[in-house]
């Protein structure tokens, strides 16, 4: 809304908005600050916002004591892999729903979303058994599959809303121009939907990165991503705030940075294309 306001009003707004934003951000900030404190000053009373004895010791200790690169790499493979696989399956489905809608398209979409409402815990034991039996337990392949299926409804829905914005005449034009269905999707639809696909990818990488149920229950060591890394850290480390904060910061830093850099696409993705 481009409405003229007085400078005084703008200053007031700025102060208010920044206060609220800092309150929301403060827990993350406090965690990051704590990760640079020595253990005694991390629990010092009264608390110190900036401690005098800055240290990187927490990080070096966490790094030395656990195999962070492996957890990190597992997280990358699982979140990116599940997202790409999901896109490969979802793009044709979303094409169908958006450009050849039938009477039951809406129901189908809603059914897909409703599969996400099933509490994961409810099927934990069967999933555990299935994963053990099929050799998928504690493998990256297994988690890629699981997280792909978990996020597939969201991916389909987001792509569907983006595709619907593309005029069907353009796809018909490509059909008149002699493009097969496959070429129509590869040469015309996908390039036109790049911004939407990018947003969808980003959001789903984040959702997969932050998933902390299947990633913890269906892994032990080999395929465990950062969510398992942090869960394992909190129990034996007990109240070593500095190290716990350092480990936590290391777990969320990659995705936090990715999210901040791609803010624009992400905001678009976050709204699921459903709000304009």
């Amino acid at each position: 809304m481009a409405r003229a306001v007085t400078p005084r009003r703008k200053a007031l707004n700025t102060v208010a908005a920044w206060s609220v934003a800092l309150i929301i951000f403060f827990p993350v900030l406090w965690m990051i600050l704590t990760s640079f404190k020595t253990e005694p000053s991390a629990v010092a009373m009264p608390p110190q916002l900036f401690s005098a004895d800055w240290t990187l010791e927490n990080y070096s200790e966490v790094w030395a004591r656990s195999d962070y690169p492996r957890f990190f790499w597992n997280s990358v493979v699982i979140s990116v892999g599940s997202t790409l696989l999901g896109l490969a399956i979802a793009i044709p489905a979303a094409w169908s729903m958006a450009f050849v809608p039938g009477k039951r398209t809406k129901d189908l979409l809603m059914w897909m979303l409703s599969t996400k409402m099933m509490p994961a815990v409810a099927v934990l034991i069967p999933m555990y058994l299935i994963f053990q039996r099929t050799g998928l337990f504690d493998t990256k392949t297994g988690l890629v599959l699981a997280l792909m299926l978990m996020n597939l409804p969201i991916i389909v829905w987001m792509l569907y809303t983006y595709f619907k914005e593309i005029p069907g005449e353009i796809l018909e034009a490509s059909r008149m121009d002699g493009a097969s269905l496959w070429k129509e999707i590869v040469y015309v639809l996908t390039p036109m939907a790049v911004p939407g696909i990018a947003s969808t990818m980003l959001l789903n990488v984040i959702l997969a990165w932050n998933e902390a149920f299947w990633t913890i229950t269906l892994t032990t060591t080999k395929a465990a991503p950062l969510s398992a890394f942090i869960a394992s850290f909190s129990s034996p480390q007990g109240l070593f705030y500095g190290k716990l904060s350092a480990a936590s910061t290391m777990a969320i830093a990659p995705i936090l940075i990715l999210g901040w850099f791609s803010q624009k696409q992400l905001v678009r993705g976050l709204t699921f294309g459903a709000v304009k």
């Binding site: 406090w30 965690m31 990165w209 942090i230 777990a251 936090l256 803010q263």
Partner: peptide
Amino acid sequence: RILVIAPFFVMPPVAAMIWDNL
């Protein structure tokens, strides 16, 4: 906006850790 969306990037175990302990 960057500050406001930050909590969305925090995975549940970390969020619980921050609040529970810190």
